[in-house]
Design a binder for these strands. Structure first.
Lengths: 288, 288
DNA sequence: GGCACCGATACCGTGGGGGTATGGACACCG
DNA sequence: CGGTGTCCATACCCCCACGGTATCGGTGCC
């Protein structure tokens, strides 16, 4: 049972494609190859692992339990390999005066904290250049895992922090943002139930991990600024951390939501990271 | 810069070998191949990553910054790939009535808690078979990372928990174990400084990660039982968590050490684990 | 029963990974 | 300072295995 399997990433990539498509033909197309070699590669992989990964009839392909496990773990492993390559690539560029750390944050969130962090770190002796990568919700996790980023500002409980090392930075309440002049904007507090029932002001729909949107009435949004604009236009409302409302203009007002979960901004990095620059950023963040 | 590198695990294995040996000839031997193809494979890897990983003269091979990063990250990636294979393998065996979860613990530590945990989990409906893998200190981390284990009982602050999900189980003080009848065994407390100065009773030396032992006067030990026996023989003393002393026989006695750090026993598992059996074990542990 | 779909098998060509032989740089030694 | 030993790179070759095309065989559907 202590058999070292010695899988190749190519095999894993093939398997993940088939396991996701559940169809050899489509998977082969996606991989840019013909179907027969793919079939063979999968059977070879099965021999190597010593287990059937896919139950296949000529009509339907399904995952076995072992297959489900390998899909899950294989994806993680492939991301780790990608991460290794990319981080080495970037480490080389760092010597040439290019940016050496990539920090990722949700566009529009914690912007004040981010600005202070960058200032504080830049003031340190020996500070590396920091490349800021703003992105949509949920993307940071992937960037951190596959090596395109080194540090991230995440927001619990929205973002998954499993597998990362984290330090808590600030915890804040959430508020509902309303168009200025909305009758309820004079209230001092509201509940989530009241927010959900606001006539004519649906909550916007954020994309899921895979990019698709949940069903519902609200407008589809991908970005923080889109939300603010929609609220200003009187087409939506949104529940957000206080800090997101700190800089709101004259056309928005905020009301504290009492029963919304508190949001903690955390700084996160890959658990095994030994980078001096990342450590410096974390230190700077904790001193804020 | 968004170049998908697409490394193969073979290349990574080669690179890790060379980076560890810092010598192409020895690395080739270790890999069971000739030196020239290894040289070529490394240059190809360098082209793929787009960076020099090793500075080589005919006398000395050294790692570049990019090389150091790739060594670190590559090791983690290789372990992730191994883990994927092994866990899939075991998932297949699980269907055939063999053990489906592997739990690892330090030999001799938390044995009472471990027994209670196994009992509690086994009593649950639908409990899977649990394979217990006892091992030396520091080994569990590796077992969990490379897929030979699914859950571990770890002890903070001794074991590294970075990258795992954990739940705290119990926190305890540490005691010093002395041969029964030792003059100081009547004391109610001691300090670490006093323990270090006990004449004729040196602290044992535990192996480091790489298997080597630190310099010093104490006997070399690999195991909990070895320590207990040496103490009973009057050749050593040891600072251990209270629970390790709970079952001590007539030939040992324990004295509380006031300034030793508290030890927390935690249950840990890979962050991305979705296994039902692991979740059940964690639940059972939390209910103890 | 005919047909369309889809995965497995058979067979073939080529690229690349691995082998041996050798070159060339560098340190050490007499 | 030439000789020698060490060690990585290059040259050249071979063969396996990966990928391609053609085809078979099973399965569900009209």
């Amino acid at each position: 049972m202590d058999t070292a399997t010695g899988l190749e990433t190519r095999e894993l990539r093939y398997f993940v494609a088939v396991a996701e498509e559940l169809h050899f033909g489509r998977a082969a197309e996606r991989l840019g190859m013909a179907q027969p070699p793919l079939s063979r590669a999968i059977s070879q992989l099965e021999r190597r692992v010593g287990a059937t990964l896919l139950d296949r009839t000529s009509r339907r392909v399904t995952l076995t339990e072992a297959g489900r496990v390998l899909l899950e773990e294989g994806r993680a492993a492939l991301e780790a390999v990608e991460a290794a390559g990319r981080r080495a690539q970037r480490a080389a560029l760092a010597g040439t005066g290019q940016a050496s750390v990539v920090l990722t944050a949700k566009a529009g969130a914690s912007s004040e904290l981010l600005a202070k962090l960058l200032d504080a770190y830049a003031a340190e002796p020996g500070a590396a250049a920091v490349d800021v990568h703003l992105c949509g919700p949920g993307e940071q996790e992937r960037l951190l895992r596959d090596g395109r980023a080194d540090v991230a500002l995440l927001h619990r409980p929205f973002d998954a922090t499993a597998g990362f090392d984290t330090e808590d930075l600030v915890t804040e309440h959430q508020v509902v943002l309303l168009p200025a002049g909305h009758p309820l904007s004079l209230r001092s507090e509201m509940t989530l139930a009241e927010v959900a029932d606001l006539p004519g002001l649906p909550l916007p729909r954020w994309p899921r991990r895979d990019g698709s949107f949940p069903d519902g009435a609200g407008p589809q949004v991908r970005d923080h600024t889109q939300v603010l604009q929609l609220i200003a236009l009187g087409r939506a409302c949104a529940v957000l951390p206080e800090s997101a409302a700190a800089t709101l203009g004259r056309d928005l007002s905020a009301v504290r939501v009492t029963d919304a979960p508190e949001v903690t901004t955390v700084i996160a990095w890959p658990a095994h990271s030994r980078s001096r620059a990342v450590a410096g950023l974390v230190q700077a963040a904790l001193r804020l």
